[in-house]
Computed example of a mutant assay.
Amino acid sequence: MLRIMHVLDALGNPVRRAILQELRAGPRAVGDIASGLPISRPAVSRHLRVLEDAGLVQAREEGARNIYSIRMQGFASVRDFVDDFWDTALARLEELARQ
């Protein structure tokens, strides 16, 4: 699947991070997510679309509502990115220990 926005770019927005925090408790409808945030329901929908394009959330239809949930596989590239830094840091630490 082609990603329109890179995961790290999507996570760079504080509203999108707040939406992900809201979804940590479990799947929720757009209106439920919006009720916990200081932005409008249409704005939440736009942010959810970005998160979905980045592979961080997924939606399923339930009647007339879309229910969003976190897509844990979407965070793999974030983990890989951070792990690359740890590998470098550990290699430097090992080199210092040898000296």
Score class of each variant (00 low, 15 high):
Asp9Asn: 08
Asp9Pro: 08
Ala10Pro: 07
Gly12Cys: 04
Val15Thr: 09
Arg16Lys: 01
Arg16Gln: 08
Arg16Glu: 10
Ala18Met: 09
Ile19Gly: 05
Ile19Pro: 06
Ile19Lys: 09
Leu20Trp: 09
Glu22His: 14
Ala25Ser: 15
Gly26Val: 05
Pro27Leu: 04
Pro27Arg: 14
Ala29Glu: 14
Val30Trp: 02
Asp32Lys: 11
Ile33Asp: 05
Ala34Asp: 09
Ala34Lys: 05
Ser35Asp: 11
Ser35Asn: 03
Pro38Trp: 02
Ile39His: 02
Arg41Asp: 02
His47Cys: 09
Arg49Ile: 02
Glu52Gly: 12
Asp53Cys: 08
Ala54Val: 03
Gly55Ile: 02
Leu56Thr: 08
Gln58Ser: 14
Ala59Pro: 07
Arg60Met: 09
Glu61Ile: 11
Glu62His: 12
Gly63Asn: 05
Ala64Phe: 03
Arg65Ser: 10
Ile67Leu: 14
Ile70Cys: 06
Arg71Trp: 02
Gln73Thr: 13
Gln73Lys: 13
Gln73Val: 13
Gly74Thr: 07
Phe75Ser: 04
Ser77Asn: 08
Val78Phe: 04
Asp80His: 08
Asp80Trp: 05
Phe81His: 14
Phe81Ser: 07
Phe81Glu: 14
Phe85Thr: 00
Phe85Asp: 13
Asp87Leu: 10
Leu93Cys: 09
Glu94Tyr: 11
